[in-house]
């Protein structure tokens, strides 16, 4: 019986590790040269026929991270035609070893470009890329290309949309308390949350923003309970990032509050609750990579999707009657970020 107990304790500890490490491993932010994505790309130029493969940690319809890259591929396909671009994907590659195997398989079986859509895939990519000098790899969300000339890096300036969401949230809250549910305090999630808080504080410094990281990407029940807790503490407007937030959206909906989304347009999920979503349009950065590739550059550069280049777009929910002054403030914030008149102070 001792033995079973030990096994059980081991399993529990294993789970603890899973919870603690969650999905995105922190990525060291290396010093990089100015991202080269400032000007939007013009007309689609003639490009070679491309077969693209995507490897991603969650599912293509997660209303969040993976859906954003999937939607981008559909957009690319629409633009260039299915004859020019065909793509395949491996979703739910939560286990990095499996993802690495998939990346290698795709590269070996003749795909021109393999997109590793998850910051946790970095070290695998670093190992695999040199073996396939003819294949372009894209790694997101990060800025690190490991100095290899067949790896592109891409990330989103998610603090920009976060800021705009924050400005609107600050104007819509009546209780002056706003709740935020995050997965892990690192990477894209942290960037978004920090931008959001900055937007709120710039609008009304007296508002209290409750930020809770639940260190988990899938525990819907815990996300829901976090929302309940924040609502009990007075929150009437909320935001959050990663796929477990559906639990939190449900709770703020029940309580008649507002939600601000990120990564994908979440208005379909809760049409009477989601005010606005920051949507990633990775196709903007992917187009630059594809363009460079057809000119013979296989990688070595990093790109940022932001409001200025259209890699990030604010989607306002038409079902919600957003007050005019809130809408104006949002537009002013977007313009200010694009012009550079607003600088977002991150902690």
């Amino acid at each position: 019986m001792k033995k079973t107990k030990i096994i059980l304790i081991l399993v529990l500890m294993l789970m603890l590790i899973f919870t603690a490490c969650a999905q995105q491993t922190p990525v060291e932010e290396p010093d990089v040269e100015e991202p080269s994505s400032e000007e939007p790309v013009e007309e689609p130029e003639e490009i070679e026929k491309l077969s693209i493969a995507i490897v991603s940690p969650s599912s293509i319809n997660d209303f969040a991270f993976t859906q954003s890259i999937y939607d981008a591929m559909l957009a690319l396909q629409e633009e260039y035609g299915e004859d020019t671009i065909d793509f395949v994907y491996s979703e739910n590659m939560f286990i990095v070893d499996d993802a690495a195997a998939a990346i290698r398989d795709y590269a070996a079986s003749g795909y021109n470009m393999v997109i590793a859509h998850g910051s946790q895939y970095g070290s695998s990519l670093q190992e695999i890329a040199p073996d396939f000098p003819e294949v372009s790899f894209a790694w997101g969300t990060t800025v690190d290309t490991f100095g290899q000339d067949n790896i592109y890096a891409y990330e989103a300036a998610s603090h920009e949309g976060g800021y705009v969401n924050g400005v609107m949230a600050a104007m819509l809250t009546e209780s002056k308390v706003i709740g935020v549910v995050g997965p892990v305090e690192t990477g894209d999630a942290k960037l978004y949350v920090d931008g959001f808080v900055a937007g709120v504080k710039a609008t009304d410094p007296d508002i209290e923003v409750l930020v809770t990281y639940i260190n988990n990407f899938s525990d819907v029940a815990l996300a829901a309970e976090t929302a309940e807790t924040q609502i009990a503490a007075g929150a009437d407007v909320m935001t959050g990032t990663a796929q477990m937030v559906v639990g939190a959206i449900g709770k703020i909906q029940e309580n008649g509050g507002y939600w601000f989304g990120t990564q994908a347009d979440q208005a379909d999920f809760a049409p009477d609750t989601v005010v606005a979503s920051q949507v990633y349009h990775w196709e903007v950065v992917l187009k630059e990579m594809i363009g460079l590739r057809s000119e013979g550059t296989l990688g070595g550069q990093s790109f940022v999707a932001n409001l200025a280049n259209g890699g990030q777009v604010m989607a306002f929910n038409p079902n919600i009657d957003i007050p005019e002054e809130v809408m104006e403030a949002a537009q002013a914030a977007i313009q200010g970020i694009i012009d550079g008149t607003i600088t977002i102070e991150l902690p």
Partner: peptide
């Protein structure tokens, strides 16, 4: 709601 892996251990 149902989300993939929602029982989370």
């Amino acid at each position: 709601v149902f989300q993939l892996g929602m029982t989370a251990g």
